[in-house]
Amino acid sequence: MTELLQALILGLLIGGVYALMASGLSLIFGVMNIINVAQGAFLILVAMFTWWLWKSTGVDPILASVVTTPLMFGFGWVLYRTVISRIRGSSTSMSVLLTFGLALTIEGALNVTAGNKFRSATPSYFEESYHLGSISLPKPQVYGFVAAVLVLSALYVVLAHTWAGRAIRASAQNPSGAALVGVGATSTAALAFALGTSTAGVGGSVLSVLYPFFPASHYDWISRLLGIIVLGGMGSLPGALAGALVLGLAETLTATYWSLRWSTLVFYLVILVVLLFRPQGIFGTRLREDVVA
């Protein structure tokens, strides 16, 4: 029983972090039909930067997200304005090609500057845990989860209660309807892309503590994140949340009752089974109506 509870709670904590990482990918797809396969590379880039900051100044890696998040917001905004906006109106597969190129560029740059070896930020609490009765909660996981909840809540507030958020949702649901009320397509897309990219700021900083990484780790991460948003329903934020929790739970339950080595495979099996019955994903509805102005 304790074992099960322990696995469930750990799965929840990990799932929360996955949700954080997948939210940006989902937001960007939902608004622009862009599949940003560079999101994994963004995570590793930030993880590397966070590791370096921690190593050279001793700043807490998870707290470093206070810096990395706005940095990634700015990076995303500039990237959209200078590069991504050029493929506006092209097909989704074009966005995959472009952002894959971006991912390779980042991977290459990291290989050259940081070297091709595993790293992990190990602050003082790295191996400590909180104890709730017989259940132990690893501190890094708890802090990562708290950061994820904070960011996802902030994202929710922005999307639900600000004009910028309304503009983003309007563009996602009905681009020509948004144009009819004066929402600028380019500025809204840039904002959405920047917001989505900024989640890789927190995500990457948290990753640097929770998972060892090296430049090519982004392949592993992007496949997980894509799995999550496909499972949840492409472009649906609640879907990304649900998909992430399923992945977190699948991983810890498999690791607890079977073997760690099988946990990722089990996740992909879950995706396969869910999609057999719900091809549109858990939360996939057709948000985007065919629009004729």
């Binding site: 309304r166 949702r169 309007a170 649901q173 009819l180 009320v181 004066g182 102005a293």
Partner: peptide, 28 residues
């Protein structure tokens, strides 16, 4: 100058109130 198109002008997942509010985007 405002336009009501032939079809599909609204934001289907938003509430009626939010949809109308979006009409005031320029005077937000």
């Amino acid at each position: 100058v405002t336009q009501v198109p032939q079809s599909h002008a609204l934001f289907p997942s938003m509430t009626v109130r939010e949809n109308v509010l979006m009409g005031g985007f320029l005077i937000r």
